[in-house]
Simulated assay, not measured.
Amino acid sequence: MHQLSLWGLQTWPASIIFDTPIAFYNLTCGVCICRNLKKLGRKMDSFCFAHHRFPFLFLATLYVQTISFCFCSSDGVPGSLRSACREDERQVLLRFRHDLADPSGRLSSWIGYDCCQWRGISCNNLTGHVVKMDLSNTYCQHDYLEWDEVAYRRSLLKGKLNPSFLTLTHLDYLDLSCNDFELPLFIGQLKSLRYLNLSSFSSSQGVIPESIGNLSSLKTLDLSSNYFDGIPIPQFFGQLKSLQYLDLSYALREEIPPHLGNLSNLSYLDLSANFWLTLTSTNMNWLSQLSSLKYLSLQYVDLSNTGVS
């Protein structure tokens, strides 16, 4: 038999008050309600402690109200205060899914009204805005010796981003890695993006949209494992002044442009495994301008003309 003691109340056997596990859970979650509402800046002392004099009223109130009110999560926000998915953004995601081929059914959970519960989707707890979309294909993490090309092809999401995607104005994390999408030119209008991963990205357009240079808040950009054959790094890279992480491994065949030296906040730069690059002491002058750089990888890059052994 469970014993309950709330804020100095007389200790009562739980079975006397409630006779179901869900009722007991809702009762104990009452503590969570008051604690977390105070975290949110609400003055709940009068509510929580006024019931010292009316223990049965307090417990009965919890039983009736908290059954839909107090599903407390690890981030400290009770369920009733958590905003559900916004309908306009849900419709955008449904249109996006409609335009995709999904042979393995990775997006089969994209049903129902609360898109915040869909696979790969995360929302702001208080506003309900979609802030994160992680559709990365984990099959690309398979060991090479276990690679199955048929299974890989089946795991891909293939299609395009509908222009209605621009409705997701609060999206700050977008991972489309290891899929086969058409990369739209309008992606640079998602001004809230701070994280963008397009690694192992089979874009049928074969270009890096210049509009990415408009993502002034972008901190992480991963374009690795793409092999942009004959495509120079666009000038826009020099505009990404907030960028801290840049991965261009297995991606380049052209000369590295000096405008990378404008990325004064860059702390991580991976240029490894660009086998066709030939660096010289002249075309590496831009490195000295990266004052925040803490990690640099040039593994498997030809450095024979740089004087570096």
Rank of each mutant, 00 (worst) to 15 (best):
H2G: 01
H2F: 08
L6C: 13
W7D: 14
Q10V: 14
I17Y: 07
D19Y: 12
P21F: 03
A23Q: 15
Y25T: 11
L27Q: 13
T28F: 08
G30D: 14
G30P: 04
C32N: 13
N36K: 15
K38P: 00
M44W: 05
M44Q: 10
F47N: 09
C48L: 06
F49K: 15
H51M: 12
R53M: 10
R53Y: 10
F56C: 01
L57G: 06
Y63C: 13
T66Y: 10
T66S: 12
F71S: 15
C72I: 12
G76F: 07
G76T: 01
G79T: 09
G79D: 07
S80R: 07
S80F: 15
R82F: 07
R86A: 06
R86H: 14
E87R: 14
E89S: 06
R90Y: 00
L93N: 05
L93F: 10
R95C: 02
F96Q: 13
F96A: 03
R97A: 13
G105Y: 07
L107N: 03
L107G: 11
G112S: 11
S122I: 02
S122L: 10
N125Y: 10
T127G: 04
K132G: 00
T138N: 11
Q141P: 01
H142P: 00
D143C: 10
E146M: 14
V150G: 05
S155C: 08
L156P: 05
L156D: 01
F165S: 15
L166H: 01
L171D: 06
L171T: 08
L171P: 04
D175E: 10
S177R: 00
F181N: 01
P184Y: 12
P184S: 13
G188C: 09
Q189G: 04
Q189I: 00
Q189V: 00
Q189R: 08
S192R: 12
R194H: 13
Y195M: 05
L215S: 09
L223S: 07
S224N: 09
S225H: 13
N226I: 04
F228P: 03
I231K: 12
P234G: 14
L248W: 03
S249Q: 08
S249A: 15
A251N: 06
R253Q: 12
R253P: 00
P258R: 11
H259T: 03
H259V: 06
L260F: 11
L266P: 09
L271Q: 11
W276I: 04
S281T: 05
T282Y: 06
N283H: 04
Q289P: 01
Y300N: 15
V301Q: 08
V301G: 02
V301A: 07
S304I: 01
N305C: 12
